[in-house]
Design a protein around this nucleic acid. Structure first.
Length: 357
RNA sequence: UGGGGUGUAGCCAAGCGGUAAGGCACGGGGCUUUGACUCCCGCAUGCGCAGGUCCGAAUCCUGCCACCCCAG
């Protein structure tokens, strides 16, 4: 019997993933990961409650469960990079890194040492194997698809992964959980950084990075306010600026970060400064092992949950130049550009620069 | 202290005698395994202050205060 280790978060998705695998006859082991030691601003450590849910679900399904702690690995390989990116004025995506470095590396290694043949998670995504290679496909539930977060995985990681819930939609998944009597059936979906949770972001970051206040200026250089520190803002952001009151009305958005002068450039209204026609990425990860061609058209997302954008990809020495068929709002360095061919997630890379306005 | 102008929520800003529009900001939700965007809801028993006229005043009258502009 093939053994599958299931990463269980204490949510419905991974609960049902474990249930389905058990029903399919695998030798299933549930493992809860605790990767963050600190509490939130209310002094609550949600991990304890989540592990309680994992225990209840595993008991119900009839599988053994364990808990592992990769807090050190998470800090070293994900969180420290995350902080460094913010210090560099960029907006990192920790969850993409978390998947390639923790869930599908540290955790996967652990699982295989424990005799697993596969590592399963509750991600909304699908793996399709034809011949010797595995392809990462979008989830059946387009609204919940999480392939964006998995774009950094390698062929060997994908080929050892299972996503049991990738073929169903959220509604039927909750129904299954309910019928199986799983305690997590009605549990609210979790949000926020994986393993850390929903936080008041500025306050959270301030615990780790020094706040260096400065001026907010218009593209023309007129000072219109003060900012608390460039790392607390991201391109395209509106809320938190605290400025308003022009006769014409209208919202203000973050257009750029001037690290050299510690100034936040803001624009009044949806000006062209918020838009880009192209971007450059760092080294691209190809889930299939190699790019389809040196130059090709495909669909791209430069942010999670964004509708597919038509684009042309031109590989370069260190990455790629991606040119969109229509202007893109708030292309943000640090985020991932993820490429798709139909339902197949080809891979992606970190956005280094945005081009054109 | 001669003349003119303006004072409505944190910021803009409607209103011109009939019982305080709107926008931005802010707060709370929704959406969401990053950060954002977005959507919904909320947000002045009171209109610089004090009197007066009137059934009724932010709107009219009087006085005072503050700020701005032009003269001196």
């Amino acid at each position: 019997m093939e053994r599958v280790v299931v990463g269980m978060s204490g949510g419905v998705d991974s609960s049902v993933a474990a249930l389905l695998l058990k029903e399919q006859g695998y030798d299933v082991v549930g493992v809860f990961m605790k990767n963050w030691e600190e509490q939130d601003e209310e002094g609550v450590c949600t991990a304890a409650g989540d592990y309680d849910d994992v225990r209840r679900v595993c008991d119900r399904i009839g599988i053994p469960y364990y808990s592992v702690n990769f807090a050190k690995e998470y800090w070293d390989r994900v969180f420290s990079v995350f902080l460094g990116e913010y210090e560099a004025g960029r907006t990192p995506n920790p969850d993409v890194l978390c998947n390639s470095e923790i869930k599908f590396k540290a955790f996967l290694d652990f699982a295989f040492k424990a005799g697993a043949d596969y590592l399963a998670t509750g991600h909304y995504a699908r793996v399709q194997k034809n011949g010797g290679t595995a392809r990462l496909l979008r989830a059946a539930d387009q609204n919940k698809d999480q392939t964006y977060f998995l774009a950094g995985l390698s062929q060997s990681q994908i080929s050892r992964a299972m996503f049991p819930i990738g073929g169903m939609n959220k509604q039927e998944l909750r129904q299954i959980a309910k019928e199986a009597g799983l305690s997590t059936a009605q549990k609210k979906d979790s949000t926020g950084i994986c393993f850390i949770g929903e936080r008041k972001f500025k306050q959270f970051l301030m615990q780790y990075l020094p706040a260096r206040p400065g001026d907010m200026v218009t593209p023309q250089g007129k000072v219109v306010g003060r900012h608390d520190g460039l790392m607390f803002y991201t391109l395209g952001q509106r809320r938190g600026l605290g400025i308003g009151g022009a006769p014409e009305g209208g919202r203000w958005f973050v257009a750029d970060k001037d690290l050299e002068n510690n100034r936040l450039v803001v624009t009044h209204g949806e000006t062209g400064l918020l838009y880009s026609k192209a971007l450059e990425t760092g080294a691209l990860n190809w889930i299939g092992g190699a790019p389809p061609a040196a130059s090709f058209d495909c669909a791209v997302k430069h942010r999670y949950r964004q509708p597919d954008q038509r684009a042309h990809v031109e590989l370069s020495k260190d990455g790629a130049l991606i040119t969109f068929s229509s202007r893109q709002r708030a292309v943000t360095p640090g985020q991932w550009a993820v490429l798709y061919d139909g339902d197949c997630c080809l891979g992606g890379g970190i956005i280094e620069t945005r081009i054109g306005g």
